[in-house]
């Protein structure tokens, strides 16, 4: 089993409620999710809980582990703040926290997931553009890549997208 985010690019309005929810839930001065404006849509990205996580490979302190449900966790107790994972991740998911001198990373709000509640960012999305889904490898649950996302060949992120549909233009005369 592998959990991952799903983003409907037609629905996301770029309101940044997900960013604010993440900041509030984690109680940090910055958000682990960021919204990037692209041409015609917004990309709301956090950790993609990749199949082949580079952060996991390069960490010299055995800080990362991947649970059976595919969530990649970061053990702050072991982190020395060397920033190797920050540099290695093509999606800039791990972020250095100057207040603690350690790296922080989206853990899909694992404590909420374990209690059957969706992550804070998903709950906060007013248009339900952001969701969590279970990838079983059989069904095609959406596009794996859209313009604006870094190279996915190596790390194989688990995020899936509903690509933006061609929009009709209505002129008021």
């Amino acid at each position: 089993m592998q959990l991952g985010f799903f983003l409907d690019l037609n629905r996301c309005t770029g309101c940044r409620a997900c960013e604010a929810a993440c900041r509030n839930w984690k109680g940090m001065g910055f958000s682990l999710r960021q919204v990037y404006p692209e041409t015609g849509y917004y990309l709301s990205l956090a950790c993609n809980h990749c199949e082949n996580p580079e952060c996991f490979r390069v960490c010299p302190e055995r800080t990362y582990n991947k649970r059976r449900d595919g969530i990649i966790l970061h053990n702050s107790g072991r982190c020395t703040g060397c920033n190797r994972c920050v540099r290695a991740c093509p999606f800039a998911a791990p972020r250095y926290n100057p207040a603690t001198g350690k790296v922080e990373k989206c853990d899909l709000c694992v404590e909420r997931i374990d209690n059957g509640v969706v992550p804070a960012c998903v709950e906060a999305c007013p248009v339900k553009a952001l969701q969590v889904l279970e990838l079983d490898g059989k069904k095609d649950l959406g596009a794996k890549w859209v313009a604006g996302l870094a190279n996915i060949h190596l790390t194989r992120p688990t995020i899936r997208f509903k690509p933006p549909a061609a929009r009709e233009r209505h002129l008021l005369l």
């Binding site: 996991f56 055995r62 990362y64 582990n65 991947k66 649970r67 059976r68």
Partner: peptide, 8 residues
């Protein structure tokens, strides 16, 4: 094996 390979 997965637990070994994912540092669990």
């Amino acid at each position: 094996i997965q637990d070994i390979l994912y540092n669990n």
